[in-house]
Design a protein around this nucleic acid. Structure first.
Length: 341
DNA sequence: GGAATTTGACCTTT
DNA sequence: AAAGGTCAAATTCC
């Protein structure tokens, strides 16, 4: 059930999210100004900051006094109402939430979609730079491919409770949907992992092995394969609009330095099931010009295409959960080394 | 031999 | 009751 309150709160949260994100991107830009980052990267960050402003203004305008329905400007006409506050099929127990939310530590949750593609087929680990240990695999009803469950290797040693689920897309086997839950509180430094320079990528691991990401030197292929990803932020426990999270591990500069994969068609990644959940935020976020407004309920998706062209908005998103800032996780470790640049 | 993965059993949630 | 998520013993890998 999506109440008025949640609608208003959603808007507030969105605004805070946007402004906060803009600030963080500005921080990133500051970092890039002091580094050997390419001018293109800086331009992209700048573009994102501008987009953030645009979105903030959009939200403010949409919540103007005359607006009877706060979400009206956001919610398009096409989205199914039944989805309302519940993002993309995730559970929503309103009553429970009131009771539980105070007790349960809410883990920030977001989704990456990672496309692996190559002439050689789909292979290579989806290495996000973190060290994961697989602890389970399940066949999921209605899906072709099993879902794999990973937890941080440093769970015991460093009390790091980050987990992720990896599942290959039914529609496009080259796309893997990765659901991250919880942030790393260990001392892994995914971004700083030196890109290994093996001249030739090792022969492909089998698909069964492809999720075997250790901290071993990242496979060259993996970066080459990683031609695009979607970040879809979701908050399983709150119905509020959530903020764009960012992949904690996208080694953007490195990927950019690798010349790859041509033109990943943007729309290709837009599966039917996701089209319904695109929000104006995500569109505006990277492109700033999209106005096909569709309400996405509690979802806020973000498309990131790591192509070479600026028009395709190769965006570097750095790990950041605004949810946690706003109202969810008081223990959000912003001071975690390496989390922000 | 230690660490990671596999996989069926068990637990939780709906 | 069924599906999703986690555990843990067995197995495999390095």
């Amino acid at each position: 059930m999506c109440t008025m309150d949640s609608g208003l709160k959603l808007e507030q949260t969105s605004l805070i999210n946007e402004l906060t994100q803009g600030m963080e991107i500005a921080k990133q830009l500051r970092f890039h100004l002091n580094s050997a980052s390419s001018d293109e990267n800086r331009q992209l960050l700048l573009q994102r900051i501008l987009s953030s402003y645009e979105k903030s203004l959009l939200i403010l305008k949409s919540s103007a006094p005359t607006t009877g329905m706060p979400e009206s400007s956001i919610s398009g006409d096409g989205s199914p109402r039944s989805e309302d506050c519940n993002g993309g099929g995730f559970k929503d127990h309103h009553q429970d939430q009131n009771v539980v939310s105070k007790k349960r530590k809410v883990l920030p949750t977001w989704t990456d979609q990672v496309r692996i593609s190559s002439e050689n087929g789909f292979e290579g680990p989806i290495d996000d730079g973190y060290s994961w240990r697989k602890y389970g695999q399940k066949d999921i009803l209605g899906t072709k491919y099993p879902r794999s469950y990973y937890r941080c290797t440093n769970r015991n040693s460093q009390n790091c409770w980050a987990t992720k689920q990896v599942q290959r897309s039914d529609d496009d086997p080259t796309v893997f949907e990765i659901i991250y839950k919880g942030r790393h509180e260990c001392n892994q430094t995914p971004h700083t992992a030196p890109p290994p320079p093996p001249p030739t990528p090792p022969a492909a691991a089998s698909l069964d092995k492809q999720n075997n990401h250790h901290q071993q030197p990242p496979n060259n292929m993996l970066f080459n394969f990683r031609t695009s990803l979607t970040v879809n932020t979701q908050d399983l426990d709150a119905k509020d609009m959530t903020s764009p999270l960012t992949s904690p591990s996208t080694s953007f500069e490195w990927m950019k330095s690798q010349n790859q994969d041509q033109n990943f068609p943007f729309s290709k990644l837009v599966h039917d099931e996701y089209q319904d959940s695109f929000s104006p935020y995500q569109m505006m976020n990277n492109f700033g010009v999209f106005h096909d407004l569709q309400h996405s309920g509690s979802e806020l998706n973000e498309i990131i295409s790591t192509n070479n062209s600026v028009t395709n908005s190769p965006i570097l998103d750095l790990g950041f959960s605004i949810d946690s800032v706003v109202d969810l996780d008081p223990n959000f470790p912003f001071d975690t080394p390496g989390y922000f640049y």
